[in-house]
Design a protein around this nucleic acid. Structure first.
Lengths: 205, 205
DNA sequence: TGCGATTTTGCACAGTGTGCATAAATCTCC
DNA sequence: GGAGATTTATGCACACTGTGCAAAATCGCA
């Protein structure tokens, strides 16, 4: 087992085993009904090992991708420079979030679990926060603005990611069977719709 | 009935004492550098009593107002029925958040502390979540829509509260010395500005 | 095979959070 | 003003969380 099972691979496998166990057990018995000990046992590692991979039960269930914020940042900067930022945001988020939802059954379970357990919700919020920060930085760069002083980058990112959040939620709810991208398009359309008065107000001054 | 609701007032006083102690200690020594024991001692109660008032250190530092979501809900429904919801949201949030920032020195310290301690951030996110839910419900009622199936309420609330979040952050940063209401107005103006392409796109179809 | 580096694990320990029983304070009513 | 009911504060026991440290197992490589 020369280059194949190098240490990296094994670490990833362990990480995944712990995450899978955490998700499964929390899905079945709830956050408070699941102990680190139980997760470790199902993952086949010692309890102490859990803490080498995750800082909490919530993190183990969520298992955020550390590359995700940087990936979004890059994707946003790779859009055509003359494209409006809102449109860029819509495209990038639609595509990149969409990719994560290909295993739709798992994605739905995940979403439902998060909804069921309030503590997971705030762990997810921390991820959103990190993602939005990355997007704000990219938008500011695209617009040539200082994100510390100018409101624009923060505001547009908040609106765009909010629209996606809502779309994703509705997608997972299953009320609407359209593909995710369509729901994002509709969310942005509704956003334009409902903010039209604001644009008008601004125009008539 | 000795004084007036001695019991109630005493409970409030205790709650406040614990909150004050928690804020002060965490401000000075950080979240991990502050124990429940220390907070309780400074507040003049037994450690066990802490848990009758707050479910965690974070909650004690934040000390959210349980009335807040309902108050926003009500305020939104009390706006003129023919006013555009975005405008209603702007007015209500501007006014009601503004009220909480009158003690500006304390508000800034609070904001800075939250920013410094990532764990506080996710506790605050839980509050935002609750608030947004209340707003979504009110908006849906105003528009006569079902918030479960229609994207509009969620989307407009996300955009509006996002704008306020950004305005509040800039306000606390101190880069911009204008009053909070002005910053909210600007945030909404920038929102209209940056989303104009989206509105145009929608109009030309 | 065996050496060096990395990962896993056990152990100890400080801190978190809850249930339960009792003491203390407050309220009600006479 | 005081007895009894109700609410709040506290002490204690206990299970779980999270971290530091050092020994042991494992792996990559010569």
């Amino acid at each position: 087992m020369l280059s194949v099972m190098l240490r990296e691979r094994k670490k990833l496998a362990t990480r995944r085993a712990i995450h899978d166990a955490a998700f499964d057990l929390v899905d079945r018995h709830g956050l408070t009904g699941t102990t680190i000990e139980a997760i470790s046992e199902q993952a086949g590692v010692a309890p102490r090992t859990f803490w080498s991979y995750f800082a909490s039960k919530e993190e183990a269930v969520i298992d955020r991708d550390p590359e995700w914020p940087a990936a979004l940042h890059t994707a946003l900067l790779e859009r055509p420079a003359d494209e409006d930022v809102v449109i860029s945001l819509r495209c990038v988020l639609e595509e990149m979030i969409g990719e994560r939802l290909v295993d739709s059954e798992m994605a739905v379970r995940r979403q439902q679990l998060i909804r069921r357990e309030a503590h997971l919700m705030s762990a997810v919020a921390a991820v959103y926060d990190e993602v939005e920060r990355a997007l704000v930085s990219a938008v500011a760069q695209r617009l040539g603005l200082d994100p510390e002083t100018d409101l624009r980058p923060g505001v547009v990112v908040a609106a765009a990611s909010g629209a996606c959040r809502v779309a994703q939620q509705k997608w997972a709810d299953g009320h609407d069977r359209r593909p995710f991208a369509d729901l994002v398009d509709e969310a942005f359309a509704q956003l334009a719709d409902v903010l039209t008065p604001l644009v008008e107000e601004r125009r008539t001054r």
